[in-house]
Amino acid sequence: MSLSLLLLVVLGAVPSLVLLLMLGSRDPKRLRNLPRNARESVTPWPPARRRLIGALAALPGLLMMLNGEWAAFLIWLGLCLCGGWLWVHRLAPPAIGATMSRD
């Protein structure tokens, strides 16, 4: 893999992952389900802002596609999907006090 491809992937993936983290930290459903003490400090973003941040997160991939950088696009997509999955786990509250009732 060449350095230029690596650079392209990093330049695309880092801002997208940061934006995904911001999106997740202000996600209304996630915030609604937080424990009460954690809920007060953060407010959810309105839908328009969430859509804007989501579109900005997707922008690097779109630019890669438009430029025909398909290898970079696929790696960027893979990193964003894995990173998003990881963020959800990082943003989740700890399992203290979890109950054992039937689903």
Binding site: L23, D27, G84, A92, A95, A98, T99
Partner: peptide, 18 residues
């Protein structure tokens, strides 16, 4: 997709696994 960022680890354990 609305639950893309929702992981209720602190609630019911089955719900957390789900």
């Amino acid at each position: 997709f609305k639950e893309l960022f929702t992981l209720r680890r602190h609630k019911d354990r089955m719900l957390s696994t789900r």
